[in-house]
Design a protein around this nucleic acid. Structure first.
Length: 819
RNA sequence: GCCGGAGUGGCGAAAUUGGUUUACGCGCACGACUCAAAAUCGUGUAGAGGAAACUCUGUGUGGGUUCGAGUCCCACCUCCGGCACCA
């Protein structure tokens, strides 16, 4: 533990982070220096953090890492003269807040208020430059009014609809879940195995946007640079999640006693292997199965199999490593359209109901899964691609046993084979429509009314928001109904259309709803007439830099892009994509290398670190730990380095400063301006660790040189100001400045000090370093070679051989190659 | 299985994008100051050999391209993240 002690030797004023940080935080708040105006004459810069949901646990030291980064960027941009929007808010609807409320027996509204206050306090002591007058909270009726409004627009365009398909259900959280809320077949929140449950759901048709969500990841500007400056890994995750694949839909006629005009449509990416089909498989949930049951010989056996499958969890069923099971539908056959062969029809657990057509053609010779299944049930394996070695062969090749297609390339035959089979070429996606209703209390009410006469009637926009009623019991019912259903005075309303008796929709929206558009509300947070004023939207959008966790790649970031594109289509926003540049934060792990969690007892509270070392030290340390996007373990004993660095700056103020006008060596200018250049570039590229490193190098060199003018010291302070805003403000003020350092202009490097009068030239012999010498920059190749040959250390390496050639790289090195 | 990313001192890491590997920081050792300690300052800190000057080896492993490779190419190993019976 670091202890602050006074030095007996000097009379320096001690660096007291506690009083300095408190003083300037109060000062900034009262002078409102971070308040953002809509001054459109200035160039804007919109930098955004992923807003937190205020859980009961409070922040740990990992949470602020991203916020520190955006704070640094926003401070530099402000000093560079930009009009900066750097807002903060709270994502307070949803399961975490609600479960916390249930656990502590407090109403969610009360719990959220308490937790938000606590979070704000924790953020405030870190010295962030948020404009709190623009704070948004997704649970504020003035906010969720517009979340509901967006839902109504989606409904109007047919993109929100009721569905009765079985959906994922978490038996512990007692609510339906979207595909994105599931990890490895388990509820992303509580880890429980999800079940399939048929129930009425509101679903958003995100699949209508699948193609655009995918294609727009790759859009490039005229000069070839990507429009979305996102990490490739996140783009790749989204591509995989959307999961586009092209293939053919092929129809197989079904024959059997009493059957007429019955068909099975299958989806395949390999229509070229159609001659190798030896059976077809339906998923157990396929709609056709019920119809076929009465036409087969083994109805009982098939029924038994289906109920066996139904009792299995989704994860058991779809585990790719387990042995596949299935049962033949005896007494019926399918006709292969390319050769009119009769093949058997099966249902099997390895065919998914909700992808493609829910049915596949099986080509065991050229598909690993079909091969496995065929071996187990002794089904025919018919190769149609020439091969050496064992089956299955899943690569493309030359077709055999394929009638008139023999000898052609399987890859090229795909489309011809499709039309030969009477099929159609189609595109499919893995992306599923977004299950949008939750059977829980703490969410935005879905603004529709169910009328016996008129059906589904949207709540008129003028009646928004539909407020969450205040209830005493908000625990989930588990019946598939929201707790809201029990509040009859809220539920029963006149139908807006016919004034007859009607009931409100009692499902609520998922947590992701409010966060899918919040960045727009910061642009115009208090507007009561519109989601966002269009002039303000045009000025501020899109977000220039968005920083947050990579875990949101396939959830929040897909949903937000979907809503943004929809809002673009209906003219609410002016850009096609919401976030120009995306940067993800690497997690800070616990000191033991595990994720920071109460469970492991490895949580470090930022309040403690700020108390002991100060917010400036914490900020510098977190940015100095390593590359920003990399996951790194916390190490309390390393913080002292950041603290020592700040103290060194503090000491420099009191020992090095000479009066402006006194002579200061040129070397000081060189150090300062080199650092200005490096730090400016590094912050721009989010290379905070190397920016701090170069500030440390500068401080070390300047201390060695021993004198520094006030102006030069101020430049150094400005470079450090985004990282350590309090101590730099204090020192800046102590030099007689009355303006805040944070609104002072950012330094610009002076080119005359960026060139050096000597460069070190490395001498290599056969690629090995054997010496070096100093030369003026721009020295000619000939001159460099001459100096290298004459260098004293070199003669012993070259005197006993013949020089084959000499490579000279100006300003860098001379390599003498011996034979 | 598929898709991304990463392997450099005791530790976190840096490397002008093909040109002195280990900057900066932590830790450690020794020294200065001190009655002593803390703090601070200074010196050292990849491995092997050598009294030393110095030499050799060294960026996960094995090959390759090049005057020159941590960086580029091929094959492999390990770790992390994501997806996973998507036909």
């Amino acid at each position: 533990m670091y202890m602050k002690k006074d030095s007996p030797k000097t009379s320096l004023v001690a660096y007291d982070h506690v009083s300095i940080e408190k003083k300037w935080q109060n000062q900034w708040a009262s002078s409102k220096i971070y308040k953002t105006t809509d001054d459109t004459t200035k160039e804007k810069f919109y930098v955004l953090d992923m807003f937190p949901y205020p859980s009961g646990e409070g922040l740990h030291v990992g949470h602020p890492k991203g916020y520190i980064a955006t704070d640094i960027i926003s401070r530099m941009k402000r000093m560079q003269g930009k009009n900066v929007l750097h807002p903060m808010g709270f994502d307070a609807f949803g399961l975490p807040a609600e479960n916390y409320a249930i656990k502590t027996q407090t109403h969610p509204e009360v719990a959220v208020k308490t937790n938000v206050a606590r979070y704000k306090k924790q953020l405030e002591i870190l010295g962030f430059d948020y404009d709190w007058s623009r704070e948004v909270n997704t649970t504020d009726p003035n906010y969720y009014r517009w979340t509901q409004w967006i839902f109504l627009q989606l409904y109007k365009k047919g993109l929100a609809f009721e569905s009765y398909e079985p959906i994922n259900w978490c038996p512990v959280d007692k609510t339906g879940l979207a595909n994105e809320d599931i990890e490895n077949g388990r509820c992303e929140r509580c880890g429980t195995l999800v079940e399939k449950k048929p129930m009425r759901q509101w679903v958003l048709k995100i699949t209508d946007y699948a193609e655009r969500l995918l294609a727009d990841l790759d859009v490039t500007a005229a000069d070839g640079t990507p429009v979305l400056d996102w990490p490739t890994s996140i783009k790749e995750l989204q591509r995989n999640w959307i999961g586009r694949s092209e293939g053919a839909e092929i129809t197989f006629k079904i024959e059997g006693s009493g059957l007429a005009h019955t068909e099975i449509k299958v989806f395949t990416t390999r229509p070229d292997t159609l001659f190798g089909v030896t059976y077809v498989v339906l998923s157990p949930e396929h709609a056709l199965v019920t119809e076929l049951l009465s036409h087969i010989r083994n109805t009982e056996e098939v029924n038994a199999y289906i109920s066996e499958i139904k009792n299995k969890s989704d994860i058991e069923r779809t585990d790719a490593t387990k042995e596949k099971t299935g049962v033949e539908l005896k007494g019926i056959t399918a006709i292969n359209p390319v050769n009119n062969e009769n093949v058997s029809v099966w249902i099997a657990d390895y065919v998914l109901a909700d992808y493609g057509t829910g049915a596949v053609m099986a080509v065991p010779a050229h598909d690993a899964r079909d091969f496995q299944f065929a071996q187990k049930y002794n089904l025919k394996i018919q190769p149609v691609i020439s091969h050496e070695g064992s089956l299955p062969v899943i690569t493309h090749g030359t077709l055999i046993n394929s009638g008139k297609f023999d000898g052609t390339s399987s890859e090229e035959a795909r489309k011809d084979m499709t039309s030969f089979a009477g099929g159609t070429w189609v595109t499919k996606y893995k992306l599923r429509d977004w299950v949008f209703s939750r059977q829980r209390y703490w969410g935005e009410p879905i603004p529709v009314i169910h009328c016996g006469k008129c059906g589904v009637v949207p709540v008129p926009e003028s009646d928004l928001p539909v407020r969450l009623p205040n209830v005493t019991s908000y625990e989930p019912t588990g019946t598939g109904e929201s707790p809201l259903a029990a509040i009859s005075e809220w539920v029963n309303v006149p139908c807006p259309t016919c004034q007859g008796p009607a009931k409100r929709e009692t499902n609520t929206m998922p947590q992701w709803a409010g966060s899918s558009w919040y960045y727009l509300r910061y642009e115009d947070p208090h507007n009561t007439n519109a989601l966002v004023d269009s002039a303000k939207e045009k000025y501020w959008s899109p977000v220039d830099l968005y920083v947050g966790g990579a875990e949101h790649a396939t959830r929040h970031l897909i949903y937000a892009r979907f809503w943004h594109k929809f809002l673009f289509d209906i003219g609410v926003v002016s850009t096609n994509e919401p976030f120009t540049k995306l940067q993800h934060v690497g997690l800070i792990m616990g000191e033991d290398g595990r994720k920071m969690s109460k469970r492991f007892g490895n949580v470090v509270n930022p309040d403690d670190i700020v108390g002991t070392y100060g917010a400036d030290t914490l900020r510098v340390y977190e940015m100095f730990m390593g590359p920003f996007d990399q996951q790194i373990a916390w190490n309390t004993s390393s913080i002292i380095g950041a603290r020592r660095f700040i103290e060194k700056i503090w000491r420099m103020r009191q020992t090095l400063i000479v009066e402006d006008g006194a002579t200061v060596p040129d070397s000081v200018h060189k150090v300062i301006h080199k650092t200005v250049q490096k730090v400016s570039e590094d912050i721009e590229h989010l290379h905070f660790n190397t920016a701090i490193s170069s500030l440390m190098i500068a401080a070390n060199e300047l201390e060695k040189i021993g004198s520094l003018s006030k102006t030069q010291f101020e430049i150094l302070l400005k470079l450090l100001a985004p990282f350590a805003p309090h101590v730099t403000e204090e020192l800046f003020a102590s030099l007689g400045n009355t303006q805040s350092i944070h609104t002072a202009p950012w330094p610009i490097p002076d080119p005359q000090f960026l060139t050096s009068d000597a460069v070190t030239i490395i001498i290599q012999v056969n690629g090995k370093v054997r010496g070096s010498f100093s030369a003026p920059p721009g020295t000619s190749k000939e001159e460099l070679e001459r100096s290298a040959r004459q260098a004293p250390d070199i003669s012993k390496w070259i005197e006993n051989g013949k020089i084959a050639k000499v490579i000279v790289v100006p300003n860098r090195l001379v390599n003498i190659v011996m034979t």
